[in-house]
């Protein structure tokens, strides 16, 4: 799912720490925008798409191991949340792809 986070980072334009809005698609950062001057830092479009594909491949490959680890740490909560999370995966991936393509 696209995730928006605000954080304090140093803006090159304002030359001091300002609040930035960071947009993520899955594990990847899509853009950061300074809330004071609106200057934006983005991944190069082609680079981001390739990066996203590689990252998605890595996420899928490591999912069973991550799920297994989480299952052993909190079996009850994972059993409750798993069906809902599993069903929401296509929507989540689609939303990430839209963020990558439609930026």
């Amino acid at each position: 799912m696209n995730e928006e986070v605000t954080a304090e980072l140093h803006c090159s334009h304002c030359d001091h720490e300002t609040i930035h809005t960071l947009v993520y698609a899955g594990r990847l950062l899509v853009s950061t925008t300074c809330q004071t001057c609106n200057s934006q830092v983005k991944h190069e479009a082609i680079d981001l798409r390739l990066h996203y594909l590689k990252d998605l491949e890595h996420r899928i490959a490591t999912k069973p191991r991550r799920l297994w680890r989480r299952f052993w740490s909190a079996p009850f909560s994972i059993m409750i949340s798993f069906p809902k999370k599993f069903m929401s995966q296509p929507k989540k991936i689609w939303s990430e792809i839209k963020a990558i393509l439609g930026r």
């Binding site: 995730e3 605000t6 304090e8 720490e17 609040i19 960071l22």
Partner: peptide, 14 residues
């Protein structure tokens, strides 16, 4: 210093 924003060390990175 800016209220509700996240301290950068808690940001997600890959």
């Amino acid at each position: 210093r800016f209220g509700h924003s996240t301290n950068k060390v808690w940001l997600p990175l890959s």
